[in-house]
Design a protein around this nucleic acid. Structure first.
Length: 874
RNA sequence: GCCCGAGUGGCGGAAUGGUAGACGCAGCGGAUUCAAAAUCCGCCGCCGCAAGGCGUGCGAGUUCGAGUCUCGCCUCGGGCACCA
């Protein structure tokens, strides 16, 4: 009798696949292609269970499609630039490059034992000069096509560390290391013109049929198309050059409810005023301390300052409105100036209340009378309301109709024009950091901003940098910065900004089609492999990464790097849920949170209370009683924060390597695919691994037992087992196609139970176990190969064609119909599948439970849903 | 604050508007064993001896029939443009 020993069989079959070249992708004109891609990982150093879940899902699809006869491309790479490498260098010394490549090597070593069907010959990291050099080349192409430009933009500035901070590094308005109040500072930065594509990116969402509806909605909302009126107020008492104030509104129908005008602290008028007015300067400075994130701005207390300037209402010269500077107005949206209508906007209402401004209603609910408001009245735009201060359209109309009428009216009067606006802003790609793709540009005193010559690419990052001072090491590098102007040859300075890491991840999927080419892509490879047929990744990337990639694909097409068909690069998208874990927290002397890894925490249930303590050094030497006693002391307790997305910064990560070492990869794979639906978050618990292991053992034992049956052994129930087999093939296939892996696994449990209980002939049992192995092979490929070989299967299961269900074996002759009385199930009957409804009715009315319920009377109604259910209404 | 999503037994979860709880975990009972592990068989939403009643976050509604559809809430999670 053989034993299931993953430690022995897993390396064996991985070697067999390698030797057979099972996973090397090649252009095969004879077969349809299938490109399956999981979002590539950031090389943090260790894979976590979320990676295992993500890559196993992709692997199931890749292996399944390969069995179905497709020529499959399933590559892997590394999203390798970014802040953590620099943070590590600052905290622990060392170099970001060494840290990153060291991490990649470790993670590759951790991933390989999973037995993923990856074409490792295509692997690359975005920090490879071979990759980012091509990215620089495309940056230059984008410059030539006018897709790139420079403008001023604000960043978070830490005045103590003298460095730019990411939003993540700003905590409650303070720098994460220095604790200093963060300021906003303007820098000249590089931008991609994604907003030129707003309309197209929005319209094309309709074509993304195989994307989750919620992602399409989120993208549409992010792009944020709005129709409104842009017009200018004429100003009173404004400085020279500011005799007009342009505002944009999506509710021009509320113009008669205007109560004030407000401008962003970054508005040119505000900037002008702060130079001459101390109070304004102080207020604007206060606004700038809020930070740059939209979340911070929206959550901050709404404040404003009256500038003393007035504007004239466009319909009434005598009607003047005060102009405030307000901290919640975004310079990037519309014109950076608004008029406030407090009656119909809660934020404006709060503002008007705070500063004692009038709140005139423009419309009231249909049938209601005008009355003083205690909160803003904001009905749906599609709702009909009665206008009491309307000026265009009907008295009673929907908001939509009123907006259209108001725009038409204003255009007719020469007050502004209807415009379509988008919320989407241009993509700022400049980062004042070392560990990123250098922007391949040179600043020359005579020629200005000049693109580097392509033959000089890649502009490689210098290795000799130090992280002992804050700020960008490229800025203070002694020689790297100095260069010759590509145009005139005079001494010039390199751009020291590097690119946002989102740029790196916006085209890697295209690069995988020709990963080592001397151009960004190769036409025939892109033509054959694009698009990605199935993209799989976290829901947290639903907006930015996917939107940037959609833009990038268009830009690459414009520059001739992708075919037209690839401008929407991902045919189907699946967003997997996240693996969550609870968080363990203590606080340092300054009250700032400190997080702890689960492996350093002893977690137990103490008299019904969930308790966590940090494991003391001598924890392993403690007896259970001592450990409980230690945990009982409230002084040792640490805080448990409810389960959240696993993140390195919160340290709530678990190590899948332990599971692989202990149970083998197939168990880990089986486990992460079972139970939770793949699109849903799953909280990590260790309990299920044992169960998965047990089941795989059971399947192996079953295989062994069947192999040991005497040849030609007759049996009973051949037909039943054959039917169960065809049913399993049909169901599991459907469920894999539909990304319902947890349900596929439930079916596989059922089928395994059926095989185990069967006393069919050896021939049928053998067929059943081999089909079971095939159906399991996408999830547990090693075990499946071993069963296949044990039963004398031909070749590798990885290369065997996917089994097909015989439709004739799927139909049952009789069905069980539940009988409901007034919608509650009361009985059931078994009838031939095709029995006429009238026949069914007769049987139902003769049923004992029905007769009892009717109590001699006749039913009000009798509903027969053929093949499903019967409902008797009394 | 704004946008998006999710809530079903002790737990993870099944359920084209049609038998709520498939499948698994945990638990309970039994077989095997000197004993244990492993394995196998059975039970397993709640209340109730039973008949029966109640049950899908809360409150309404549509329907012969609602976990599923509509409206209003509550709670939790994701994103918010420099985290990746």
């Amino acid at each position: 009798m053989s034993r299931y020993d993953p430690a022995q069989i897993e390396p064996k079959w991985q070697k067999a696949w390698d030797e057979a070249g099972c996973f090397t992708a090649w252009r095969d004109p004879a077969r349809p292609k299938y490109y399956v891609l999981e979002m590539f990982p950031y090389p943090s150093g260790r894979i976590h269970i979320g990676h295992v879940r993500n890559y196993t899902m992709g692997d199931v699809v890749a292996r399944y499609k390969s069995s179905c006869g497709y020529s499959v491309l399933h590559p892997m790479g590394w999203d390798a630039f970014g802040m953590p490498a620099e943070n590590a260098a600052m905290e622990r010394g060392g170099h970001p490059k060494d840290w990153t490549y060291g991490n990649i090597a470790q993670m590759r070593d951790q991933m390989k034992p999973l037995g993923l069907s990856i074409d490792w010959s295509r692997e690359f990291a975005t920090c490879d000069p071979e990759y980012y050099g091509q990215q620089q080349s495309m940056f230059i192409d984008f410059m030539e096509k006018g897709l790139v430009y420079r403008k001023n933009a604000v960043v978070n500035w830490d005045p103590v560390d003298m460095t730019v901070l990411a939003n993540e590094q700003v905590i409650d308005g303070k720098g994460w290391r220095s604790g200093a109040e963060v300021e906003r500072r303007e820098l000249t930065q590089w931008f991609f013109r994604i907003s030129d594509f707003s309309g197209e990116l929005l319209d094309a969402i309709d074509g993304l049929k195989d994307w989750p509806e919620k992602v399409r909605l989120m993208q549409a909302n992010w792009i944020g198309k709005s129709r409104g009126l842009q017009f200018a107020f004429s100003t009173v008492d404004a400085p020279e050059g500011f005799d007009r104030l342009e505002v944009y509104t999506t509710r021009p129908d509320t113009l008669m409810g205007a109560s004030f005008a407000a401008i962003s602290p970054d508005h040119p008028l505000a900037k002008h005023l702060e130079r001459h007015d101390k109070k304004i300067a102080e207020f604007v400075a206060e606004c700038r301390r809020i930070g740059t994130s939209e979340e911070a701005l929206e959550k901050a207390e709404k404040k404003g300052l009256d500038t003393g300037i007035r504007v004239r209402h466009p319909f009434d010269e005598a009607w003047e409105l005060p102009v405030y500077i307000a901290n919640f107005i975004l310079m990037d949206y519309g014109t950076g100036a608004i008029f406030g209508c407090p009656a119909h906007d809660q934020r404006d209402f709060d503002f008007a209340t705070k500063y004692g401004l009038p709140i005139p209603p423009v419309f009231v609910a249909e049938g209601a009378e005008e009355a003083a408001l205690t909160e803003a009245y904001v009905p749906m735009k599609s709702e009909r309301v009665r206008y009491v201060r309307g000026f265009a359209g009907d008295d009673v109309q929907t908001g939509e109709a009123a907006v259209d009428a108001a725009i038409a009216f204003c255009e007719g009067k020469g007050v502004g024009r209807g415009v379509t606006n988008y919320r989407l802003r241009d993509w700022g790609v400049s980062r004042q950091r070392y560990w990123g793709c250098p922007i391949p540009v040179v600043h020359c005193e005579t020629c200005g901003v000049v693109a580097e010559k392509k033959e000089n690419l890649p502009v490689e990052l210098p290795y000799d940098v130090s992280f002992d001072q804050p700020g960008n090491p490229l800025d203070r590098h002694p020689t790297w910065r100095d260069c010759a102007c590509p145009k005139c040859g005079a001494p010039a300075k390199r751009e020291t900004d590097t690119m946002d890491t989102f740029v790196d991840s916006s085209w890697y999927f295209a690069r995988f089609t020709a990963p080592h080419a001397k151009t960004p892509t190769v036409a025939e490879d892109a033509e054959y492999w694009m698009n990605v047929d199935q993209y799989i990744g976290g829901i947290e990337h639903a907006i930015l990464h996917l939107l940037y990639s959609r833009f990038f694909a268009r830009a690459m097409h414009i520059c001739g790097h992708l075919p037209k068909k690839a401008i929407e690069p991902f045919n189907a998208l699946f967003t997997q849920g996240m693996v969550t874990h609870e968080i363990y927290q203590t606080r340092d002397a300054n009250g700032r949170p400190v997080y702890h890894l689960p492996e350093h925490v002893y977690r137990l249930n103490l008299y019904g209370e969930d308790v966590a303590v940090l494991r003391p050094d001598n924890f392993d030497a403690m007896t259970d009683e001592e450990a409980v006693e230690f945990a009982s002391d409230p002084a040792n307790r640490i805080e448990i924060i409810p389960s959240a997305k696993m993140s390195k910064s919160k340290k709530n990560v678990v190590d899948p390597m332990d599971i692989i070492a202990r149970y083998g990869a197939d168990t880990a794979r089986w486990f992460v695919m079972s139970d939770s639906p793949p699109e849903r978050d799953v909280e990590w618990t260790a309990a299920g691994a044992e169960a998965a292991q047990k089941h795989l053992n059971r399947v192996w034992t079953l295989c062994d037992r069947i192999a040991a049956l005497p040849e030609g052994k007759p049996g009973t129930g051949d037909e039943d087992l054959a039917r169960a087999m065809h049913r399993a093939v049909n169901d599991v296939t459907q469920m894999i196609e539909g990304f319902a892996f947890n349900k596929a696994i439930a079916k596989l449990y059922e089928f395994a139970n059926a095989v185990q209980k069967s006393d069919a002939s050896k021939q049928v049992q053998r067929q059943a176990i081999m089909v079971l192995a095939q159906l399991m092979s996408p999830m547990t490929p090693h075990l499946a190969e071993d069963i296949w070989a044990h039963q004398g299967g031909e070749g590798l299961i990885a290369q065997a064609p996917w089994p097909k269900a015989d439709p004739a074996m799927l139909v049952d002759d009789t069905v069980t119909l539940p009988i409901q009385i007034n919608g509650k199930r009361r009985a059931e009957i078994s009838v031939p599948k095709d029995m006429a409804a009238s026949e069914v009715e007769k049987i139902v009315l003769a049923d004992e439970a029905v007769i009892r319920a009717l109590n001699g009377g006749a039913p009000k109604k009798l509903i027969v849903v053929p093949g499903r259910i019967v409902n008797v209404v009394i």
